[in-house]
Computed example of a mutant assay.
Amino acid sequence: MIGRILLPAILPAYVTALRAGLGLGWMFVVAAEFMGTSAGLGYLLIDGQQLGKPAQIVAAIITFALLGKLTDSLLALAAAPFLRWQDSFAGARQSE
């Protein structure tokens, strides 16, 4: 019953929650690096702001965006074989 009914029923919501949590995780990483580190992308962002280096700011933002998109795509790719049975998921993957 668990393998045939419960797990397939909860898996789409679980994957959605993982993807949302991943986005929040990246947001908290940025916030934590703003608070008091001397290294990292958040530090580069604040350093660029304080020293007036727009190229450094844009580079840090683009790096965060690429890392976020990469991890989200990897999670979606890893979940795809488990959600192949779901019509709405298959339609979303084909339109990308």
Rank of each mutant, 00 (worst) to 15 (best):
F89K: 02
E96A: 13
M1Q: 05
I10W: 10
W85Y: 15
F82A: 13
G52S: 02
L11W: 11
P81V: 09
Q56G: 00
L83A: 08
P54H: 09
K69A: 15
R19G: 02
A39P: 00
L24N: 10
T16F: 02
L67H: 06
I61Q: 06
E96R: 14
Q50P: 01
V15M: 04
T37R: 14
G48M: 02
V29N: 10
L44S: 12
L77R: 12
M1R: 10
L44V: 08
V15E: 02
L18P: 03
S88I: 08
A60H: 03
K69F: 12
D87L: 13
G48D: 09
A32C: 02
V58A: 11
T71E: 11
T63V: 11
G91Y: 05
V58H: 02
G91A: 13
G23F: 01
Y43G: 03
G23C: 12
R4I: 01
Y43D: 05
I10R: 09
L77G: 11
L11S: 13
T37G: 15
F34T: 10
I62A: 13
L6E: 04
V29Q: 07
F64D: 00
A39R: 14
L24C: 07
F34C: 09
Y14D: 00
Q94Y: 05
T71W: 02
A92M: 12
